[in-house]
Simulated scan of single mutants.
Amino acid sequence: MSKVEKLGKVIGRWFTLLVILWAAFNYILPKTSLWLVPNISYLLGIILFGMGLTLRIEDFERIAKRPLPVIAGTVAHYVIMPTLAWLLCLIFQLKGATAAGVILVGSCPSGTSSSVMAYLAGGDVALDVSIETLSTLLAPIALPGLLLTFAGKYIDIPTTSLFLSTVKIVLFPIILGVILHTIFGKKIEKITHVLPVVSQVAILMIVGAVIAANHANLFTAATALVIPVVILHNLSGYALGFLFSKLIRLRDPQRKAITFEVGMQDSSLGATLAIKYFVPAAAIPSTIFSIWHNISGSVLASYWRTKSNGEPRVIRTELNEV
């Protein structure tokens, strides 16, 4: 095992704590990461490029051959999370940029760390990655449309610009990564072991930048309700995702995968778009979500792993099994 792989395992083990400590550090010393604010989209591009490098044509063929659980999980994600966000804004009477920020993070594709949580919990990793891939590829259309539907009354939504930016930030890096993996094959696979470290560092840099940009408004009366809203949003997503997968009679590993895929969001994308197109305050829900869902996901994965009395292992059941 190389030093980079060892470093990646250490960072992965303590990633949630690192996110919390790094966020606190940048709240106290915001100038540390303030220079990163204009470069957040590039950092997200690096993360998604890394995701593309790990994908193969076979991953897309798997979706095409056995699409039903993948489509069901993706639809559940894009129905449950935006609707929950909208309802929570009504219940807690959130307004303006804060409400738009909650709905924005709820309209994002599945979170990149969900596959890690599914693996740790003994879930169906193949299904998890397939839903994550499909929801990310659909983001340029789904995200602006959902924002216009649910957040249009709170803030002006530049749907065309959002679409073009999401294509540029999300699709281009992934497609480029897939192309390079297809062309160079095993040569690319030799360097994929460094990708988790690169992605983790990039996520930390994005969190630091968003905290730095919002440090003056992070804990104010106007944003005091964001923390309980984000917690309820995430936990309700887990619960409804699990209930949905149980209603359609999926097996236990698949239920775990869909639970994480529904409840965990690509909050880095939410923070990036909030800063680019709205005001810094709209990025606060995404930032808090980024910290919280790593905590809740780790706890849930640990609970499921303990309950199954086993070490984490890759589950790759057939996607059409129920």
Rank of each mutant, 00 (worst) to 15 (best):
M1N: 10
E5A: 13
E5Y: 10
E5G: 13
L7D: 08
L7R: 09
K9H: 10
T16R: 08
I20V: 15
L21V: 09
L21A: 11
A23P: 01
N26T: 08
L29E: 14
P30W: 00
S33H: 04
S33K: 07
L34Q: 14
P38M: 06
I40S: 05
Y42K: 13
Y42H: 13
I46A: 13
I46Q: 06
L48C: 00
G50M: 01
M51Q: 13
M51I: 14
T54G: 12
L55N: 00
R56T: 10
E58C: 11
D59L: 09
R62K: 14
R62Q: 11
I63R: 02
P67H: 10
G73H: 02
T74H: 03
H77I: 09
L90D: 13
G96R: 08
A97S: 13
A97L: 10
T98R: 10
T98A: 15
A99H: 00
A100I: 03
G106F: 00
P109E: 04
P109W: 05
S115W: 02
S115P: 05
A118R: 08
A118I: 05
Y119D: 01
G122W: 00
V125C: 05
D128Q: 13
V129R: 03
S135V: 05
G145M: 13
L147H: 03
L147E: 00
T149I: 12
T149D: 09
I157R: 01
T159G: 09
L162I: 09
L164Y: 07
S165N: 09
T166L: 07
V167W: 04
V170T: 08
L171E: 02
I174V: 14
L176V: 14
L176T: 14
K187Q: 14
H193I: 12
Q200S: 15
M205I: 09
M205E: 06
G208T: 07
G208I: 03
V210H: 06
L218D: 05
F219G: 00
A222D: 15
A224M: 12
A224H: 09
L225T: 13
V226W: 01
P228G: 06
I231T: 09
L232I: 12
S236E: 08
S236M: 14
Y238G: 10
K246G: 11
K246C: 11
L250V: 12
L250S: 14
L250P: 06
R251A: 13
D252E: 14
K256A: 11
F260N: 01
E261T: 08
M264R: 00
L269P: 03
A271S: 14
T272H: 05
A274H: 01
K276E: 11
T287L: 15
I291V: 15
L300Q: 06
A301H: 04
W304E: 04
K307P: 07
P312E: 04
V314Q: 12
T317Y: 12
E318L: 14
